[in-house]
């Protein structure tokens, strides 16, 4: 076999592999959909679950996941924004910047179960927020901090120097620059970060399973100290009943909803990132 044929063969082989890997997504989606179909009746998204989760809908679980996500973003955004602004606008020392960079990597790489355990210990036990959606949101907020920071930093650094020079030429103080130039111009970058952070928080199970959730008994939280049911932990409990096809179908159904949520948020982030690039090129 000549080397040209060999090479053509290899390239062909690689293209098949690439096709397989790309279709992995399709396979996963199709599986989740096919398995979840039996459970998806018209009221699935708006009914409460019944019979230990073996029937009914997942409304409160969905609400719980959304509440945790929203809480996480609301807590995380100011810290992320503030810290990146500080690092890019005020911080001059190289060591300082390096420490900040490493800290970001530490947070990003940490296994999420550790967030859950230490977070529960710190927020839930020491700060006495207990097993509640608040504890969950706090933990998730810490977890998605680096995700938000990366997007915000990207946006700030993409800002053309023109803006900075104009600001300095006008004699504006750093705060005025931040307020009137940087933040408004980085709007899309910030929102991109928000969506990516939400997507990451939505799927997270290990971080919240000890600290924020309950399997039954709570509909919507009525105070700061109530736990919530979530899609993720609902699925976890049901998965352990894998021999019962109805229960499993419920788990798949919840999985489909969760997956759709995560994909929706990711795609939204892409659209916004596209806008960011557009703006940067203007």
């Amino acid at each position: 076999m000549s080397s040209a044929t060999f090479e053509k063969g290899m390239v062909f082989f690689l293209s098949i592999l690439t096709l397989l890997v790309s279709s992995l997504l399709l396979i996963i989606l199709a599986t989740v959909f096919a398995k979840g179909l039996p459970a998806l009746h018209s009221g699935f998204l708006i009914e409460a679950s019944e019979d230990f989760g073996r029937a009914g809908g997942i409304f409160y679980q969905l609400m719980g996941t959304l509440i945790l996500m929203t809480g996480a973003i609301l807590i995380s955004l100011p810290v992320a924004l503030g810290s990146v602004i500080y690092q890019t606008q005020y911080l001059k020392s190289k060591t300082g910047k390096e420490i900040c960079r490493q800290s970001g990597q530490v947070l990003n790489a940490t296994p999420t179960i550790l967030f859950g355990l230490v977070g529960y210990l710190f927020f839930g036990v020491y700060l006495e927020t207990g097993v509640s959606w608040v504890t969950g949101s706090l933990i998730l907020a810490v977890m998605i901090l680096p995700t938000l920071q990366v997007s915000i930093r990207e946006a700030i650094e993409a800002l053309s120097d023109q803006y900075k020079e104009t600001g300095m030429a006008l004699g504006l103080s750093p705060w005025s620059q931040i307020k009137s130039i940087i933040v408004p111009q980085c709007y899309y970058g910030i929102i991109t970060g928000v969506f990516l952070g939400l997507a990451r928080a939505a799927g997270e199970t290990a971080a919240i399973m000890f600290a924020a959730t309950t399997f039954s008994g709570i509909r919507l939280p009525e105070s700061f100290s109530d736990p919530v049911p979530t899609l993720q932990t609902h699925m976890l409990v049901l998965t352990q009943e894998a021999a019962n096809p109805e229960t499993l179908a419920q788990a798949w159904g919840a999985g489909l909803v969760l997956l759709s949520l995560v994909f929706f948020l990711t795609v939204m982030a892409w659209i916004l990132r596209g806008r960011l690039k557009m703006e940067a090129e203007l």
Binding site: A80, G82, S83, Q87, Y90, Q102, V106, L107, V118, L121
Partner: peptide, 26 residues
């Protein structure tokens, strides 16, 4: 301006504490 900088520095400190705090807690 100074006050504002302190706010941002504070937020950054919170961020740093999260990373370091995890480690020390463990």
């Amino acid at each position: 301006s100074h006050g504002v900088m302190l706010v941002f520095a504070g937020l950054n400190l919170i961020f740093l504490c999260c990373a370091g705090g995890l480690f020390f807690f463990l």
